[in-house]
């Protein structure tokens, strides 16, 4: 009877205006059988991390277009560590220059997806890299 269901937070931090991409990703995850906590636009890193903890998610996926990725994403990572919640797998996607990716990864972002990644690839990546907690 007991069965762990994968829970994943999808949101879009920063100031830019539309969430079409994030919504498409949220739907793909739902169709893959995950429970998606969709938080929409404009959240601060503090709000994201606090939501992730209250929702006990296994994974955070953030979509980002604003160019503020080099500050916002590492800030999320730092807060996760600060709150001892860095067991939550954290990935991001968006228009992110290739040069910035190594820096983000060393800041604790497990994977960075650039435009053109299919939702199928995303789902497969999550299946391979995220386990619902024991």
């Amino acid at each position: 009877m007991a069965e762990r269901k994968l829970r994943i937070l999808v949101g879009k931090p920063g100031l830019d205006g539309h969430d079409r991409g994030a919504k498409i990703i949220a739907r793909a995850f739902r169709d893959a059988g995950f429970e998606v906590i969709y938080t929409g636009l404009h959240q601060t890193p503090e709000q994201i991390v606090s939501a992730a903890i209250q929702e006990d998610v296994d994974c955070i996926g953030l979509s980002i277009l604003s160019g503020a990725h080099n500050t916002l994403l590492p800030r999320v990572s730092d807060l996760l560590k600060e709150k001892q919640a860095d067991d939550i797998v954290f990935f991001a996607g968006g228009v992110i220059p290739a040069d910035d990716i190594p820096g983000l990864k060393s800041a604790g972002i497990k994977e960075v997806f650039t435009p053109g990644t299919s939702t199928e690839d995303l789902v497969n990546w999550v299946r391979e890299n995220v386990r619902p907690r024991a």
Binding site: K5, A26, R27, F29, R30, D31, A32, G33, F34, E35, V36, I37, Y38, T39, G40, H42, Q43, T44, E46, Q47, I48, S50, A51, Q54, E55
Partner: peptide, 26 residues
């Protein structure tokens, strides 16, 4: 059909997300 779900109510409540006096669960 898939057993999955999109839980989207938090969208309207984000301002309370980092208030210690509020706990939101979807």
């Amino acid at each position: 059909f898939t057993g999955g779900a999109i839980l989207g109510d938090r969208i309207r409540m984000n301002r309370h997300a980092d208030d210690d006096g509020v706990f939101i669960r979807s």
